[in-house]
Amino acid sequence: MQIRLNQVSADYQLGPVHSPRVLQDVSLQIAPGTFTAVVGPTGAGKSSLLKVLNGLLLPKSGWAEVGDIKIDSKTSKKALKAVRKHIGMVFQFPESQLFAETVEQDISFGPLNFGASPEAAHDLAIKMIRQVGLDESILQQSPFSLSGGQKRRVAIAGVLAQEPEVIALDEPTAGLDPSGKAELMSLFKQWNKCKRLTVILVTHDMETAARYADDAVVMDQGKVVYHGSVRSLFADSEKLNRWQLDVPEARRFQLAFETYSGIRLPNVCLTEEELAEALIGVGRV
């Protein structure tokens, strides 16, 4: 499903008070089946960008297009419902959106709301709870009896149960331990590869962006300042510096090593695996 933003500007309005423009003249095209990381400093407009895609924040000017549905300042609620069926949103701390008496009810809520039969919703719930790495027996428990990491997975299972074509994730692994984080990210990557799910990931964690995403969108003060491959972004130290982005650890190690030793490694290394291979390649380890 094609996603386009054309000269979108937006702000938040509270009564007569407008916030400064959170999005300024943003044009962006995200191809189906891609895995895109949206990065940039806090307050750059990353979360707001996701809200536009889901119709939670309507453009003040310009328009967005999700598949063949157009979203602009006058889009009706009914059209927005159709958009939300295609785009699954995982907000920051999604566990705070759990509400039902049992995990199963929580996961089935979306599918039932979008017209699935109770049997289909039940089967989906079983499938999804396994997908996120939890045991089926958890379905009959109250979501509030679970640990933080488990709650997060249940909330994500609920979004995946709507079988969206696009999933928009806002810091989905904040607060998870490193192994929980790797498991969840691998799950998204797998869905992206096998099911051609389009993944849009807002993160400030450059390690996650470097390891899992193919493309990067850099936002700075409400504007898109870069859209291209993750590797060429991280190869360009000058750009990273300008946009206050961190260099992934493997790349930072590589640069420090190259400066100190005078030896240049053949590739831009984004993960420890790539760095290890490169160091083996130049005969240092």
Partner: peptide, 11 residues
């Protein structure tokens, strides 16, 4: 208690 998880690495 994990009070920095939403911060970008620089902040």
């Amino acid at each position: 208690d994990e009070a920095f998880v939403m911060l970008d690495p620089r902040s």
